[in-house]
């Protein structure tokens, strides 16, 4: 009897959830943000150089953050940064806790059903970080443990690319890398730019490498709520202008260029999709 009643309670709970749809975030974010005077952005806070806490100033800085600041400046509002994880960023956006996602988010068709993406503002591909000389081809990773982050495309891609591997998902990539350092996983997989960022900061980087094995293309987009056309158009217009004025390139050079530890080539330009 008691068990039944508990079940009934769970059902009622589920019924209440049906009303979840009523919590409507603003339909026109552009107008709403202007009214509030703040643009709330979901960003990563421990993923150099996209978004991380600067030790001295104790504030969040990075490539993603510079784009948010540029958009906020164009809007004439303040930018407020909210740390999100790969798993929490989409619910956060849909529930209206944040206005925009700038958190190393890959554009893919499944996600595009739930939210709208801006044009690609960063382009990279999914690779692996491994102990030096340990991995020559994908075969070397068969049956091994591979670390990555919960809720990321990396997790889903690697399961497809190497089905025999065991994928261990952590809350974020650096934790997965720590597991690699301690020999708990054979490789960490995610986008090359993130791997380069982790490797550059690693205390014993000489022992690791990023073999030239790419399993997918990863175009990053800024995420906005589905159907929020005015805002998407505004953001797209802004980042296209940033490309034209050279500001986008300057931000890339600032975080990834020859003066940094990464030395990445900018092999993309921000252009209108399709």
């Amino acid at each position: 009897m008691k068990k039944l009643a508990t079940l009934a309670l769970a059902m009622v709970l589920a019924g209440v959830l049906g009303k979840a749809a009523l919590a409507a975030p603003p339909a026109d974010t552009l107008a709403e943000v202007k009214k509030k005077g703040v643009l709330v952005a979901g960003v990563k806070d421990s993923l150099p150089p996209f978004g991380y806490i600067d030790e001295k100033s104790r504030t969040i800085v990075g490539y993603d953050i510079d784009f948010i600041n540029a958009i906020a400046k164009k809007l004439g509002v303040k930018a407020e940064l909210k740390p999100v994880t790969s798993a929490s960023r989409m619910p956060q956006l849909q529930e209206g806790n944040i206005d925009i996602i700038a958190a190393t988010m890959t554009k893919n068709p499944e996600r595009a059903k739930q939210i709208d993406f801006s044009h690609t503002y960063f382009f990279t591909g999914q690779k692996f970080i491994t102990k030096k000389g340990a991995v020559r081809s994908l075969k070397d990773l068969e049956g091994k443990k591979i670390g990555t982050a919960k809720g990321s495309t990396s997790e889903q891609n690697v399961k497809k690319a190497i089905p025999s591997s065991t994928v261990l998902s952590f809350d974020d990539y650096p934790q997965a890398f720590l597991a690699l350092q301690q020999g708990k996983v054979a490789a960490v997989t995610t986008d090359e730019a993130i791997l380069a960022g982790i490797l550059a900061k690693a205390p014993n980087k000489a022992q690791f490498e990023i073999p030239n094995l790419q399993i997918s293309d990863e175009p990053y987009g800024l995420g906005m709520r589905k159907g929020d056309k005015n805002f998407v158009d505004f953001v797209n217009k802004t980042i296209l202008e940033m490309e034209k004025s050279g500001e986008a390139k300057k931000i890339f050079e600032k975080w990834f260029g020859p003066t940094t530890q990464f030395h990445l080539q900018r092999n993309f330009k921000i252009t209108a999709d399709k």
């Binding site: 008691k2 769970a10 809720g151 998902s169």
Partner: peptide, 28 residues
């Protein structure tokens, strides 16, 4: 439950299922 949520975006269903399992376990 969280995996199911992030693959299907059906968080309510996944968490309800997990909740029922926990409750059945603890009540029994």
């Amino acid at each position: 439950a969280r995996q199911v949520e992030s693959y299907t975006f059906k968080g309510f269903e996944a968490f309800t299922a997990a909740t029922i399992v926990y409750l059945v376990l603890s009540t029994s």
